[in-house]
Design a protein around this nucleic acid. Sequence first.
DNA 1: GCCTATCATTTAACATGTTAAGTATGCCTC
DNA 2: GAGGCATACTTAACATGTTAAATGATAGGC
Lengths: 148, 148
Amino acid sequence: MSELRDIKHSLPMLLLQAREAAMAKFRPMLRSHGLTEQQWRVIRVLASVDVMDASQLAKASLLLAPSLTRILQHLVKQEFIRRDADATDQRKSVLCLTVKGQQIYAVVGPDSEALYKDIEAKFSTEKLNTLYQLLAELNIALDVPFES
Amino acid sequence: MSELRDIKHSLPMLLLQAREAAMAKFRPMLRSHGLTEQQWRVIRVLASVDVMDASQLAKASLLLAPSLTRILQHLVKQEFIRRDADATDQRKSVLCLTVKGQQIYAVVGPDSEALYKDIEAKFSTEKLNTLYQLLAELNIALDVPFES
DNA sequence: GCCTATCATTTAACATGTTAAGTATGCCTC
DNA sequence: GAGGCATACTTAACATGTTAAATGATAGGC
């Protein structure tokens, strides 16, 4: 009928499809541990930094603030995360993993890493590195704020 | 603290970040036309094929069936889409754009294409083609050919 | 010390994502 | 031609995505 851009050349669609393919096995694994994908992202970021405020945590875990608010409410209630007031700025919350949070990280981490290795086995490390590089360049080209 | 996989080398995270970067300008544009990203995906697919059943439409627009059900209810109510019963299989619905649906497609399509051109201008066509190729290969490598 | 703009986070409202279960129809086999 | 199984959705329930607005705290200018 019409001939706009083919789906095969729609970058957002290709990226979405690729992400779905890459995530396919992660969600059932995380679910078996009682976690969602997004909850795991938060836990993983916190595990790598010890302590972080909510704004930084949102950026690092690629979540919008309202989503993070709800996720933190849940994770605090489950006692995976503890939230404290920032000593110098009462607007901020400081988040960190509890012992229970560190424990589930230690349990889920290896399962997660195994799935990454699966992907690397199916798609050569060389191509994967090229892909990482291109995606990083794309993010810079499209003017994405990037932080560590 | 811990040393699992760096976020910078997590494929799902990189793909998510890249998609967000690529979509950043699309959502406000679509919103100015009263459409969500997913509604536009459905309309765009239907515009390219004239007629399609719901299952095919879900796959082509990368939506899960429950999401598509709700989106179609909305789009039918807005009279962008018409749904008919399949003549030979009463389980199936056959979807197509109404005249109003074709009209909004004609209006939004050029805006969408302009944003794609923006991306291509910021990120060389050559790199973009390499990226398309790699993503396609990744999808083939990871798409589970069997099981569910 | 106020005023105001900004920042950090939350709340609200609606749309979609995700899994599981439900409903209705079609297919197949005995 | 009745059972049994698969298919094509739909519903339900909960979690997250997205935008706008609200709340409370801070920083600067005056």
